[in-house]
Amino acid sequence: MSVELLNFIETVLNGLMSGVMYSLVALGFVLIFKASGVFNFAQGVFALFAALTLVGYQTGQVPFAHVINELFGTNYHNWYASMPNFLAIILTMITMIALAWIIERLVLKHLVNQDPIILFMATIGLAFALEGVGDLMWGSDVKVLDVGIPSGGSVWLEEATIGLAAEGSDYYGMYIDVLNVWATVIAVILVITLALFSQYTKTGRALRAVADDHQAALSVGISLRTIWILVWAISGFIAMVAGIMWGTESGVQFSLSLIALKALPVLILGGFTSIPGAIIGGLLIGVGEKLAEIYIGGYFETGALENWFAYVMALVFLLFRPQGLFGDKIIERV
């Protein structure tokens, strides 16, 4: 095989892997939008908050330590030296469920029957508030997150592919980050679990009923509030998974909240109401931006296509298929 072809395959593979990372964020958006019609602007901050909380539990950090120390002249920093990863993840999940409950009690409950734009604005406020609380609770330092997921280039793949190039060519194997492979496996498990949950459990069916028609669901005795708490808790869990993956890559820091912006073009491509759409959209965006950066990036003086090409793709898509690949078709009766 020619080195050019192998490099092309490598770019596509890496694009697919990056796409999975975007899909992890987009999934949370889709779940909430399907169930409640709310575009949750705070999903990126959810991921940040979950990752901050996880590191906080892992390292035994005292929440709000610097506020407590400032107010009472104390010097608290850590409860304990470390906590096993499994336990820290369970505690973080419980925290995210509690957060979903608080959001329902303090925000959503009071906004039932409001216009979608009001709910959207509320989530913007929620994003800023949660970012502030995260800062006060856990501090703004860059935190190292390690839950035991391996990262770095795959030596196995490199060695397995080095012989594929034509003899005598300057080729040193294919590159894939092991962390991204793990993210892919986790995303696949997540999607299968969500599909089984919504198809074969009573709660899952209730969830689909609410997503389909709020009024009809209410009329057959489904508690809208319980479903909302459940959906926000599930998307909190997905945010935690996304936070772990992204946080392992870059360290946990406040720029993590900006990964939500990467999910927007994914949603536009895949549709706001489709779980497979979030996955396919992510893959398309991931591959598209990597190919654009590597093969046409050199023609742009400003470069850095990797970060804005996704939006160009989304814009083009909006012109031809505004509901996305798998989204519900918008039909207005007049």
Binding site: N14, S18, K262, A304, E306
Partner: peptide, 17 residues
């Protein structure tokens, strides 16, 4: 020259290059 846009959370293509 390899520019990276703000904030720089995703740089995979840059490092593949």
């Amino acid at each position: 020259l390899l520019p990276v846009d703000h904030p720089g959370q995703e740089q995979k293509a840059t490092w593949l290059k």
